[in-house]
Design a binder for these strands. Structure first.
Lengths: 120, 120
DNA sequence: ACAATATATCGCTATATGGCAATATAGCAA
DNA sequence: TTGCTATATTGCCATATAGCGATATATTGT
């Protein structure tokens, strides 16, 4: 038996190895490009094939294909071939959460800034 | 009065402008480097000055300083000067959430992979 | 086999950025 | 002032990667 996994009472950070940090950074990096976020945002509505994603993205097919492979590599999307087309879908349910948290924070900061300008 | 903010019943994605996508990507980019994650992880334990962060990070001071400015620019940390030292602290409470979600997902995937190797 | 369509991959250039060494700046003390 | 410490900034190099055009591969239909 490995030692029991005690949850931490304090807010202390767990010791993260460099390898773990690299893994985490890698996943954030996959979310760190506007075009990839756009693709994911499109896929939130449901499964789409590559051509549809190219149209929605408004950029070249080669580019979309490359970004899709990054997302796939990061385990964020899954693909299945159906005849001629490749259908893509989100395979990582936490992505929606992550984006919502980010957006909420951005909105809060924006409103905070707006308040600074009230009644000049 | 602006139009009321109806919450969405469906799982439909909101229309995100390119500017918004860029902003979101920018924040994820700040989290997309192992060293920055390490700094944030250290700061989770509380306020630290730059020298302490340099020691904890195990890299050069110039490097740490640059990464800190990225995090500050992204609104994730705040700094205050106290005499000779600059004290840094996390200013964005959502960071912890984001990292925890990422880590949970990584752990889940790791366990999933481990299962694939059971009973070869 | 050939043609047509959908997607992936390759080669390229331009840009962004991490790390380092050196230097600059700021605050404090003697 | 001079010197010391803490931090920021600058210049440089190496690497990563976004975007693009061209090409390769795969799948289906004729």
């Amino acid at each position: 038996m490995p030692p029991k996994n005690h949850p931490r009472r304090d807010g202390a950070a767990k010791p993260l190895t460099d390898a773990m940090l690299e893994l985490i950074a890698q996943r954030f990096r996959a979310l760190a490009e506007p075009l990839r976020l756009k693709l994911l945002n499109t896929l939130m509505q449901g499964e789409r094939n590559v051509t549809q994603l190219v149209e929605a993205a408004g950029t070249g097919q080669a580019n979309v294909s490359k970004h899709l492979s990054v997302l796939k590599q990061a385990g964020m999307i899954a693909t299945r071939r159906e005849g001629l087309v490749t259908l893509c879908s989100i395979s990582d349910p936490s992505i929606k959460q992550l984006c919502e948290i980010m957006c909420a924070r951005l909105k809060a900061e924006h409103e905070q800034r707006a308040k600074q300008f009230e009644g000049l």
